[in-house]
Design a protein around this nucleic acid. Structure first.
Length: 250
DNA sequence: TACCAGGTCCTCG
DNA sequence: CGAGGACATGGT
């Protein structure tokens, strides 16, 4: 068996293979698909921060392409705005975000979020983001419809905090790398309980990597790129850039 | 056709 | 608690 590669080595390999991803993607006002990737690692605009929050909810268990369609509808109708989201009816909002799937649930979740920001921070995302990372995370998790991945995506990509995002791609690729998974043979054994596993996996990356907004930002984006193109459910290992470092290569 | 996609919440037992 | 199900569109 080949030896396990450190997350940092894997990050460097992915980065040199795919290049910088420049997440989070932002819609281009007045333009059609696709959005663009700012590649700036700094987001100051209110509308962009809010758009990232909404995108994080819209992409839950949904392809980014479909989430993006919903986001374009919101942009086109000037709904990337906490106050307007509060005013529009849930059903009308749901119609706009229809392409993202689960549109009734997501409309509710988006309104939940907007209501919280309006009532507690005077509709100012920037004020909300002045909180400590811990407080911010707790408040996000307290909202119905925002779980650990959505909260951490918002923390990392909208609030620029060094928080590692764990998603389905991360779990799949990490398991194949031999980093974590059910049973023996893994550095970090997983128990199957989602919250606990999420925490353990996130801790694994936090321990294995420097505390770096840029690395967490790029690494997660690179893992998604890997998961979409190579480390799929049915993996395409032949051309995978991690072929030589992966334990589970076929 | 069936399965998949950058999860989360609710309901049972 | 913890497993199982619901939520829903668009692509392959």
């Amino acid at each position: 068996m080949n030896k396990l590669r450190s997350p940092l080595k894997v990050y460097e390999k992915l980065y040199s293979s795919f290049g910088p991803q420049g997440w989070w993607p932002i819609t281009k006002k007045g333009k059609k698909l696709p959005g663009y990737y700012p590649l700036s690692y700094s987001r100051k605009k209110y509308s962009e921060k809010l758009e990232i929050c909404l995108g994080a909810i819209l992409t839950q268990n949904t392809s980014w392409k479909n989430a993006e369609r919903a986001l374009f509808n919101l942009t086109a109708n000037k709904l990337i705005d906490v106050k307007k989201i509060n005013v529009i009816s849930k059903n009308r909002l749901a119609a706009f975000i229809r392409p993202s799937g689960y549109y009734n649930q997501k409309a509710e979740r988006i309104k939940n979020f907007a209501k919280y920001i309006l009532c507690n921070y005077g509709a100012s995302i920037s004020l909300f983001f002045k909180n400590s990372t811990k407080k911010l995370r707790n408040e996000l998790l307290s909202l119905s419809g925002i779980g650990p991945e959505t909260a951490d995506s918002i923390l990392l990509y909208a609030a620029s905090r060094p928080v590692f995002v764990v998603d389905a791609y991360t779990i799949r690729a990490g398991a194949r790398m031999g980093w974590f998974g059910a049973g023996k043979n893994f550095l970090i054994p997983l128990c199957g309980k989602k919250d606990k596993d999420y925490k353990n996996i996130q801790e694994f990356f936090h321990n294995a990597l420097p505390v770096s907004f840029k690395i967490y930002n790029e690494f997660h984006a690179l893992i998604v790129e890997l998961g979409k193109n190579y480390c799929r459910k049915k993996p395409a290992c032949e051309k995978c850039p991690l072929k030589s470092e992966c334990r589970k290569r076929i």
